[in-house]
């Protein structure tokens, strides 16, 4: 539909572009600032001289990050939780979603209710903690995965995908050929489920990478801490302990700057794995949000 724009419409188009640019700047500027700050010189950061681009570029912040023992350990732990957790969660979610998508699954309504009810009501933090503790899961890696392994929202997304993309005729046809439910699910449904597996994998991977809640509640052993918990301890510590009697003003500024620099570099390094894969999976991601919002 190509039409020449009236004067009014041209005015609106210009206004719209202006709004778009404002939003873009508001969202992008803090991100660019953090990136620039992380590459700047510590004393310039402490003095607040960084505005848009790095000032006196240096890699000191990143060196500090990679020399930090706890950070590296946190990266490793988070990697383990991400891989194992995503595997378990995607599998369990598909196993829950497929039966719920089958109209001939006895008890379908009841089980759907059982799952969705947990989205609007919960026993609370303390009783959940006591349950996890009574299973002996406190201070184990399993505590990072099992309690939140099945995301009910994701089950609904996957169920909707199955019931809208797997034709009922397919099931009837393979039944006539004598296929069991297992055979049908593993040989026919799963190979058709590439997109939903990608979506679930992405959702869960991001969730595990960013997860902080389980670690806060169930882990006391520093060797098991995921990156997010290590980050909290560094990012939220306000001032470094400094013996101001010994140090001169410049040195204090340098120390403070280095501490800030470490924080900026940490913010960048810890967010990069997720942000780097995101452009490639954006399409799947948007699709996933859409499937989940379908009613029914």
């Amino acid at each position: 539909m190509v039409t020449t724009l009236s004067r009014k419409d041209r005015l609106f188009t210009a206004f719209n572009a202006f709004v778009g640019i404002c939003i873009l700047v508001l969202v992008a500027y803090p991100l660019i600032f953090i990136l620039s700050a992380s590459f700047s010189n510590p004393s310039e950061v402490a003095a607040g001289h960084v505005r848009l681009w790095p000032v006196k570029p240096s890699l000191m912040g990143y060196r500090a990050v990679f020399e930090h023992q706890n950070v590296m350990k946190g990266f490793m732990n988070s990697g383990i939780y991400l891989v194992l957790g995503t595997l378990c969660s995607v599998t369990a979610t598909l196993f829950a979603a497929y039966p719920l998508s089958r109209k001939d699954f006895p008890g379908r309504k009841f089980f759907t209710f059982l799952f969705t009810f947990t989205m609007i009501f919960s026993g609370g933090i303390i009783p959940t903690y006591l349950v996890v503790r009574s299973f002996g899961l406190v201070d184990t890696r399993a505590a990072m995965i099992l309690p939140t392994m099945v995301g009910v929202w994701n089950v609904i997304v996957a169920r909707t995908y199955f019931s809208t993309t797997i034709p009922g005729d397919l099931l009837d046809a393979s039944r006539i050929d004598g296929a069991s439910d297992f055979l049908f699910f593993f040989k026919i449904v799963l190979p058709l489920s590439g997109p939903i597996v990608a979506v679930l994998g992405l959702f869960y991977a991001v969730e595990y990478w960013n997860s902080f809640f389980n670690a806060l509640l169930y882990l006391n052993e520093p060797d098991l801490f995921p990156l997010q918990l290590v980050l909290r301890n560094i990012l939220l510590s306000s001032e470094i302990q400094q013996n101001e009697l010994i140090m001169n003003v410049e040195e204090i500024a340098m120390r403070q700057g280095l501490h800030d620099l470490l924080k900026y570099a940490l913010i960048v390094v810890s967010s990069v794995p997720v942000l780097a894969i995101y452009p490639f999976v954006q399409k799947h991601f948007v699709k996933g949000v859409m499937v989940g919002s379908l009613k029914g």
Binding site: N210, I267, S270, S271, Y278
Partner: peptide, 11 residues
């Protein structure tokens, strides 16, 4: 505009 969503709560 989608990007900040992926930043973790701690960060």
């Amino acid at each position: 505009t989608y990007a900040p969503y992926f930043i973790s709560t701690v960060v």
